[in-house]
Computed example of a mutant assay.
Amino acid sequence: MALVKNAHLGDPSPNKQNFINLKIKMLCCRYWLLNLWDCHEMIFPFWRIYWNKNTGGQLIHQDKVDDMDPNYIYIIPPFTSFSSRYSKNHIYNEGIHVGGKHLNAKHNEDQLASQYLIHFFIHFNLGVPFDNVYPGILKIELTDYLRDRLEYLTERLKIENKDFKLTFNLKLQAFIKEALTNIGSELWKAINIDERVLQIIRYVESNIEKKLSNTEMSELVNMAPNSFARLFKKEMNITLHNFIQNRKIAKSCELFEHTTKTIEDISFSLGFSDRYHFSRVFKQVTGLTPASYKSGKYT
């Protein structure tokens, strides 16, 4: 009979195994009929998955226009600057303008396909360091598995879009994880970053409410400020200063979503000197004012 090496784990093997703890934090998942989708220079601190059942949707990133294909899903990492539009009803050339309604079981999708963009989207976070992959728009072909999950999710969303049961949550997370496996090595590059950089990332996350300086961060890893700044930029494709700003704005978006705190409360809780400084940085990062974001007029 085999000896149980780690009795508390019920594991008979002496070989240690290392797993990556990936924690998906869901923000929203909806199925909409859109008649307007003029959104310009959107930059948000969460992942998005988009799928349109019919044609007419377009995504724009770095002046490249991608006509969205119903046979593909589109994955957009956090802090990617992009624009979107519904080509059949394109009105605005700036700002964020969305018009439409939730799609429910009473709607006939085939009849509405000529009038609306039938649009499914998910917003979520993976946590640090996986929310810091290189920005861009990733086009993933629908496999049979993804298509089957997508059909289930959209049908359920037509019936219920508020209080989701366990089965829906499990299938939604399975859909996200399967989609992410198709991205490739760039997604997982973050787990191989320099240990000193990872130490600072963790410190920023646990001290997000403080005013954090480059000098303070470099001292924590016993490096000169300029040397550490170069290392951080090389490993993360972003300056340390901008990374800290992005994480503070990401935290503020989370607070806007899940608390009733005012803009003033959030600005002070994240170490900003005043609301105006916070609003300026928020606008620089997201392209929106905190008040506009708080109103929820985005998809």
Rank of each mutant, 00 (worst) to 15 (best):
N6I: 03
N6D: 12
S13M: 05
N15H: 09
Q17T: 14
Q17M: 14
F19Y: 15
I20K: 11
L22T: 10
K25Y: 11
C29S: 12
W32M: 13
L34R: 06
L34Y: 11
W37N: 06
C39R: 09
C39P: 00
E41D: 15
I43L: 10
F46W: 09
K53M: 13
T55K: 12
G57I: 02
H61S: 03
Q62T: 07
D67W: 07
N71A: 09
I75V: 15
F79E: 01
T80R: 00
F82L: 07
R85N: 13
Y86L: 08
K88D: 11
K88E: 13
N89M: 09
Y92I: 02
G95K: 11
E109S: 05
E109Y: 05
Y116W: 12
F120C: 02
L126E: 00
V133E: 01
P135T: 09
I137F: 03
E151T: 12
Y152L: 12
L153D: 02
L153R: 05
T154M: 10
E155D: 12
E160D: 15
N161F: 14
K162T: 13
K165N: 12
K171M: 13
F175L: 13
N182R: 15
I183V: 15
E186F: 07
E186L: 11
L187V: 05
L187Q: 05
L187G: 02
L187T: 02
V197F: 01
L198H: 12
R202W: 12
E205S: 09
N207I: 14
E219W: 04
N222T: 06
S227E: 14
F228D: 01
F228Q: 04
R230S: 13
L231Y: 08
L231F: 07
K234R: 15
E235W: 03
I238S: 03
F243L: 05
Q245A: 08
A250G: 03
H258Y: 13
H258A: 08
K261Y: 07
T262F: 04
E264A: 12
D265L: 03
S267L: 04
F268R: 12
S269T: 07
R275M: 11
Y276W: 10
R280Q: 15
R280A: 15
R280G: 11
G287H: 03
L288M: 15
Y293Q: 06
Y298C: 01
